[in-house]
């Protein structure tokens, strides 16, 4: 597979480490009343999408960027690649 890195252009997926669903960005608030339930869902339950899925890839043998890649799990087609940090900020993770 080839991932079109937003800063570096097309790179072989073998340079990356895969983590999983980009929902892992949405780490719950530890002080929430139902933090235990939220963390269980965050840590263990997955949509396991069959189709376009947003997922986290880490350019370990590259510039160390974490990327959010939109990839179809049925065809492996990649339609979008973003810096995870930008996605995280857009999802309101700024301190």
């Amino acid at each position: 597979m080839i991932i079109n890195h937003p800063l570096l252009g097309p790179r072989d997926a073998a340079e990356f480490i895969y983590l999983g669903d980009a929902a892992l960005i949405d780490r719950p608030d530890w002080q929430a009343e139902d933090a235990a339930e939220q963390f269980h869902a965050y840590g263990y339950l997955r949509d396991n999408v069959a189709g376009p899925m947003q997922e986290l890839w880490y350019h370990e043998q590259g510039d160390r960027s974490w990327l959010v890649v939109t990839r179809d799990t049925l065809t492996h087609e990649i339609t979008n690649v973003e810096l995870a940090r930008d996605v995280a900020r857009n999802r309101g993770r700024s301190v």
Binding site: I25, Y58, R64, S65, W66, A84, A88, R93, S94, V95
Partner: peptide, 14 residues
């Protein structure tokens, strides 16, 4: 790797 994950994905503005 995990520290980079925390830095970029969990605490992007630290």
């Amino acid at each position: 790797r995990r520290m980079e994950f925390a830095r970029q994905c969990l605490f992007p503005d630290m």
